[in-house]
Write a protein that binds this DNA or RNA. Structure first.
Lengths: 216, 216, 216, 216
DNA sequence: AATGAATGAGCATTCATTCAT
DNA sequence: GATGAATGAATGCTCATTCAT
């Protein structure tokens, strides 16, 4: 036995810290598959490799698990997007493209994409979560993209469109993508070629936004 | 008592036919507000002005009510959109604009808008419904818009974009609108000005689609 | 079958009204035997001849069942005691004796005696119940007996003792009796001869222990 | 770290012996406040300054803790009461008064008073404890008081009453006091003036209510 | 056709108990 | 001796579904 190594055993240290994360991971999987209400704590526990009681060592309730998942999986990505937007060297169009690219990598290739779907699907029953998500994610994201658009308009890169609306038009296909991926594709929807969609969307938007320089 | 007049009372006859529709109406309201899982049959019955037992006279289960609501609310709108698309006189851009207008009128101003939200949010738990909706509504809608786009490209009105992708880009803000209206606006999201959003979207898309006629 | 007799079938009518009462009866038995916390809803349901779900047709929660039992079993006896006390013809001593007699009949011969025990045992976890019982039963009872004592003192029947204290001294053996009956007698305590105890108590209270030295 | 000094540290040695007592003390507090069922081992451990696991070093189960508390808190007081009763010099009335005084000091001013309440309230679920308490405390106490009464009657100090009943009448207000203090006073019951109550009780018992009509 | 009382399987949550360290 | 993470059986409560009337 190795009772003394407790502190120094790296496996132990990892496990101890890892437990809540494993639970969150399992929970995200379950929530993504079945939604909040339809997810059973038994199932989360099973996938996390613990028992139901253990969940309550780390979280106060099913709802707290949900909140924690949302916070943990989402907030950690906000800063990254903000970093992209803060880039001053590239053209506004390139920044937009980079943001799309990030979105595609993070939200479409990982299970995190389920979070926005969850918010839309069941946020109604969790007003607090909705508000939190609205403030911490959506409004922050809108501000970011709005900033890039304004910058582009000021620099003469873009036409003077209604920025608030344009932001939504730009984001909409990204939202559409994750909903499609999570809700329709598994049930017979045609496979979505995200790269192609974003490429086309980017083209449309840029052509739509761009001042026709030589026109006139 | 007047048990005998039941049959001959015209009001009764109308009611008799109307029952399932009233239930569907009540159910749609409930589903739209709370989602499928969180909706109680008690509540549907209450709003329909009947008792819980009565629901089972017309529907086999909660799930069947859900399916029926989706089917019923959907089929009645398909033909209308197709009629608009079939219009051969106007320019492709005008047809698109007209379709947006229809969407705004029907899906955003009535409870029907809840249906797409329901599909996206909880379709995962009803593969059959998802498949039905996919085939009967989404693919049909895609084909419609895709047709208009191809027509526009053939006529030289639009640039030669990837039609499949462009369809999604065009539809996405409409989807976004109903999700926002149903899931975020009631919980603190800024009020969405649909008219303005669609106007901006249309502008962007048309500029994005349009061949710069004088360029070159 | 007799589908038409629903209204006129006396058994049906009785059953319909009787359900909550049957549940209360079963609940009182369970509570008396095991206390509030240790009583299982399954057990109450079983004894009432219904299922667990049925309990919730008539009561909102386990606590509400408890409250209802207390109210129903206790309040209905208050008026009777008050009627006894209102008697103006008999001597104060006779009224006291009559009250003892009532107590013995009701609280010691029926399961109702468990109620005070429950209050004492678990009232701490249900402050609302404690307060209710205190106001509706205890203070009302104290006032009644206090009234008789004051009447006796005014009439010269009794010595001028501290009425508030005397009330408690008079009631105490009655309380003691039900606690003994419910908590000790079933586990080996000697069988309590209530009649004899009350007789002795009455004697003691009226005449005291001390031999009146100069009398004789 | 100082693992080696453990053995030699006098404070530690004391602690070592004190552990079970600290646990019992904490447990008594909890049981007194919430009753047996509603008391959590977590809470006992917290108040005893140890962890839940430690409880199982000293006691086999929650029930064993309960039993131990009752036994420990009770035996230490038996001899004292017997010493009082053994007094041969004073009058029987004075001995009774002294016993009341002891009761008031010990059972009403310290946490020990909770023990009788626990027995009465939850003894039903612990037949073994009830029997133990009955034999070791109650019957012994009854014998003591009964002895004093018999002595008083033989000496001509008291009237010839039924001794078995009289013992209960004498003890009842003492029981009543601790029940009131523990169960009703904390939830809105009027504050009990024990000194006054016992004084009145003593008076009543010794002299009774009735004015001795022929006395002088 | 309509009712609504009754059902019972299902689930989140609690907590006494265990045991590896 | 002491810990505290982990357990899992137990239980109050919900709600879709049934069926006698």
């Amino acid at each position: 036995m190795k009772p003394k190594e407790k502190e120094s055993d790296p496996r132990w240290q990892r496990r101890k810290e890892a437990r809540p994360d494993e639970i969150r991971k399992a929970a995200l999987d379950c929530f993504a598959e079945s939604g909040f209400a339809a997810t059973r704590l038994d199932e989360i526990a099973r996938r996390a490799g613990v028992t139901k009681g253990t969940l309550y060592l780390y979280f106060q309730s099913k709802e707290e698990i949900f909140k924690s998942v949302v916070r943990e999986e989402v907030v950690r990505n906000i800063a990254r997007v903000e970093a992209i937007a803060a880039d001053g060297e590239h053209s506004s169009a390139e920044i937009l493209r980079e943001m799309f690219s990030f979105w595609a990598r993070i939200f479409l290739k990982t299970r995190v994409g389920a979070v926005p779907k969850l918010i839309l699907a069941e946020g109604g029953n969790f007003p607090e979560i909705s508000r939190f998500y609205l403030e911490e994610v959506i409004e922050r994201g809108f501000r970011l993209i709005g900033g890039v658009l304004r910058r582009g308009i000021e620099r003469g890169e873009f036409r003077a469109v209604n920025v608030d609306d344009a932001v939504k038009c730009i984001i909409a296909p990204a939202i559409f993508s994750i909903l499609w991926k999570h809700s329709l594709e598994p049930h017979g929807g045609a496979k979505l070629d995200i790269e192609s969609l974003f490429q086309t969307h980017f083209e449309l938007i840029i052509h739509g936004l761009a001042r026709a320089p030589e026109s006139k």
